[in-house]
Amino acid sequence: MIEALALSKRHGSRPALDDVSFTVPDGVLAALVGPAGAGKSTVLRLAVGLDRGSGAVLFDGEPYSRLPRPAHAVGVVLDPRALHPGRTARGHLRSLAAGAGVPRRRVDEVLEQAGVTGARRSRPQHFRRGAALRLAVAGALLGHPRTLLLDDPLTDLDDDSRAWLLDLLRVHADGGGSVLITASRAADVLAVADELVVLRRGRLAARGPASDLVAGLKAGVLVRASDPGLLAGAILRWGGDVEPCDDGALVVTGLDMAAVGEVARAEGVAVHELSRRTADLDAALLSLELPETELLPGANPGAVPGASAVPA
């Protein structure tokens, strides 16, 4: 289990993290989500003692620095590109195994598990992002840790490596381990994360089961018409809500696609486009850039009713 307790960190006068607390129980895959600069990586760096800050992160009740053998309890992937260009992939893992107190034979096991056995004699400076990440994950798995921490593992990842990684993380969590990953795009983790922890400007904005967060988002109908103003007025009269877009399109909620078409026909407005607009959690995350009060459930279309919002 991972417990983050009142994490705070300042970069000069600017707060990078402000009193962030959350828990990732055993058997749960959680994702720290938020736009760039929200403080996601800082949480992980504080967790393993790389950054100085206040608060604590406990792994099964112990801070990272007090774990007797950290690599056997927590597997960490912070920067997959942190590789010396003069060392082979296997040499890199050998050095990690030596530091972790893991037998050398385990290196070949994790190379196979990560699907990079063929590249073990290669120097990894020219590895693609997928191969570099697989090597980094192999290093994290050396000590058979119960907990995994991965910083932004899904960005720029090829489809094969993404599928492999998400499957590995899912299996790890289902086996009773705790997994905490960070992601800038919620869409990247929705399919696999059990819980989301949403950060905004270093503060905890919302947290809760991913399914609740998605259920709280409204789907809508996108319509482009010859007279958007006339159509918007008619939709409001028919009981729908309208949100105009910058390009002149309208996003309609409260009416289904057929009803919007009927309204347009009744008003004599030509329809140029009529399509279903699915719930977009990333758009909702962007809306979290609104003032803190907007985060309260029901306060705006991007709010997340199923989640526990954290007031300022």
Partner: peptide
């Protein structure tokens, strides 16, 4: 991690790092 265990692990790590890099 006790100081002695940390030192032992760090020495192992650095020795293998040195041994596995070309410039050595």
């Amino acid at each position: 991690m006790s100081p002695l265990a940390a030192l032992s692990a760090a020495v192992r790590l650095e020795v293998v790092r040195l041994a596995t890099v070309r410039s050595s």
